[in-house]
Design a binder for these strands. Sequence first.
DNA 1: TTTCATGTAACTATTGTTGTTACATATGGC
DNA 2: GCCATATGTAACAACAATAGTTACATGAAA
Lengths: 151, 151
Amino acid sequence: MKRDSRLSSVLHALIHMAERDAAMTSTELGTCLGANAVVVRRTMGLLRTAKIVTSDRGHTGGWRIASDLSTVTLRQLHEALGEPIVFAVGNRNERTKCLVEQSVNAALDGAFAEAEALLLKRFENITVADLAAGVAKRQTKRRARHKSRTR
Amino acid sequence: MKRDSRLSSVLHALIHMAERDAAMTSTELGTCLGANAVVVRRTMGLLRTAKIVTSDRGHTGGWRIASDLSTVTLRQLHEALGEPIVFAVGNRNERTKCLVEQSVNAALDGAFAEAEALLLKRFENITVADLAAGVAKRQTKRRARHKSRTR
DNA sequence: TTTCATGTAACTATTGTTGTTACATATGGC
DNA sequence: GCCATATGTAACAACAATAGTTACATGAAA
């Protein structure tokens, strides 16, 4: 399967929107992400349903942030995207009468469930604002490097 | 993408082979797994490369276990299968000049790496023999249930 | 009223496993 | 030696989910 990069995309989009603090069109976001404007609308539409952003049509329209990004966690974004399947690996037949397969499934499911729980727990503890702050730090560093080179 | 169920498949196959303690043909295994014989050959071929099983052609041919299953861990099987990608979710652009995307990628990669490490650690601690023992337990239980019903 | 933006539908492209067909090759039994 | 049986592969279609594309309807502001 093609890997699902929508969480990565919406994070990227939200932070750019936060830096701008003004409406951004799907085309602008698409250019930013290197993605198609229709795909942007499709994906951002899920965030609108979750009331994380709003959208307006016509002139001066586009996408706007509609909630405090310090309260929006990666977990919430994952949920807003419909909790897509996390693993590319899984059992062959989820329901089976074969005892062997049942045992195998139980063991694998346990391991996968544990890993997914850990991932979602990490997602709960990271807000979009945290990531935005990380970006600000990187920008400061880059400016410092540039300054020292040109001095 | 279709989810990768090869780990589940080879575990199922190995345990059936262990119960039989005789060569099993690809067709027999395929029937067992509800899978195609060619796919069985393809996947089991990877285990042969890893010297976990052997195969023979012609009459009395088929697949045989070639190592002590109490020393074969799920991690080894995962490696034998070529360490397939575990996550169906990932970053959009792995390498990018955009600082925003770099920060997002770093945060997501960290969380994914942690979850994958946990999963592989679990895989290291489970042997095929462990699962086979689990199957034996289930069979005992089923027999007990059956006995009490027919008494 | 025109222009710009979102909202959607209906496709194709992509990317990996899985399924299928076909055929080459080796092996054991007669 | 011949034949049935099994693996070994190649080549391609099927599948499943996101991503990309084209086309057009709809709403809002200049």
